[in-house]
Nucleic acid binder design. Sequence first.
DNA 1: TTATTACATTGCAATATTACGATAGAAAGT
DNA 2: ACTTTCTATCGTAATATTGCAATGTAATAA
Lengths: 109, 109
Amino acid sequence: MGVTKTDLFTDYQNELAKIAKVFAHPARIAILEYLIQSDTCINGDLVQELGLAQATISQHLRELKETGLIKGSIEGVSVCYCIDPIRWTEVQNLFQGLFDGFPKISGCC
Amino acid sequence: MGVTKTDLFTDYQNELAKIAKVFAHPARIAILEYLIQSDTCINGDLVQELGLAQATISQHLRELKETGLIKGSIEGVSVCYCIDPIRWTEVQNLFQGLFDGFPKISGCC
DNA sequence: TTATTACATTGCAATATTACGATAGAAAGT
DNA sequence: ACTTTCTATCGTAATATTGCAATGTAATAA
């Protein structure tokens, strides 16, 4: 089928899964890393940096934009993409919530 | 095409993406949450807990097992699945590495 | 041995994702 | 207005993922 039964799960589970999906591609990780280390975050640079076609990168950028992790402002003819610090922390906390839930002193197994 | 060009990216980018893919489904989040909160972590319970078919859950468990996040030990006729604390921390650090890379005092935008 | 119970695996059908060429749109320079 | 530059979107082909019925397997019970 290929369709996820979201109605079976909690809002947290669905949201975290949706965000994780955005991280689930090396190109998007690479874009985030590039935006972190670079201050001149222009779309055009990414086509040089990664070896993907312009259309493909634009598509990845849209997915990152849709989760709110990045935002782009039109800078003349090009677009300045950068990480949204508020959302970044929010997403970090969502993951941390799961990771910290495990006490590490499991009595099982 | 649907095939990811892994050769374009670093080992870290590919590994993090692969792990994120495991988190990218609410059922697998739900399984992890259930393993965290429960001490009697039997596969059969999960079929009751989540509303998915046994075959589907078994498949999700395999994906979790393949990344090393959980491990299962045969307990008579049933299987005891639990989280691997070592790998759990490892994965947590992988994500944290990305999140902490962003200084939050972005000079851009 | 013959059930029975608990999972795993196989084999599909349906949907989602990835990648890119082609094309469109919008701003800036000539 | 015309061209150039940069990015977004559309359409499409290839591959991946999700879900489940059916079946396989291994351990226990009768």
